[in-house]
Amino acid sequence: MAKEQVEINGIHFEVDMSTAKRIDTFKVGDSVKVLNKDYSDTHIQDGTIIGFYNFKELPTIQVAVFEKGFTTADIKIININKDTKDQQILPSTPDSLDLDKDSVVEAMDNSITEKQHGLDSLRNKRDWFIKYYGKYFEKAEVTEHD
């Protein structure tokens, strides 16, 4: 048996490491590391616990995961419960977050600007369609009645 001396809150224990279980305690707002196991990739992301839902059949922890690319940033909500197979969480500390607030905000602002340009373009196309769609049929009606 592999016994090991551990200190917990100033008290020394001898623990059989082959049968020891780790118990993590979480609360809303805690920083976590999320292990994502995709089909071809395994990667670790930073996250924050945003809720606990004590469903009778499937108690669930909800985590906001921060996805930061070179020029993009997003927040994805994931649910962790006994049926979750592709994600695991571990406690983390806020200072171990691999995120820079200013660069995330800048990436989100860039995304907002890009989507605003797309929205403006779509509105212009819609307005053009409304303005000229009726004129097309007005000409068609005039030539049919002549």
Rank of each mutant, 00 (worst) to 15 (best):
D95Y: 02
D95E: 14
S96V: 01
S96W: 03
L97N: 10
L97F: 10
L99Y: 04
L99M: 07
L99K: 02
K101I: 05
K101T: 09
D102A: 14
S103H: 10
S103K: 12
S103E: 15
V104S: 08
V104Q: 05
V104P: 01
V105A: 14
V105Q: 13
V105M: 13
E106S: 11
A107E: 05
M108V: 13
M108W: 04
M108K: 07
N110R: 11
S111I: 02
S111L: 06
I112Q: 10
I112V: 14
I112A: 13
T113K: 12
K115S: 13
H117D: 15
G118V: 01
G118L: 07
G118D: 10
G118H: 05
G118A: 09
L119G: 06
L119Q: 08
L119A: 13
L119M: 11
D120I: 01
N124G: 13
K125P: 01
K125N: 09
R126P: 00
R126H: 10
D127G: 04
D127Q: 11
W128T: 09
W128A: 13
W128Q: 14
F129W: 14
F129N: 15
F129C: 10
I130H: 05
K131D: 14
Y132L: 04
Y132G: 06
Y133W: 12
Y133F: 12
Y133H: 13
G134W: 02
K135C: 01
Y136P: 00
Y136H: 08
Y136F: 11
F137L: 02
F137T: 00
E138G: 04
K139S: 15
A140C: 05
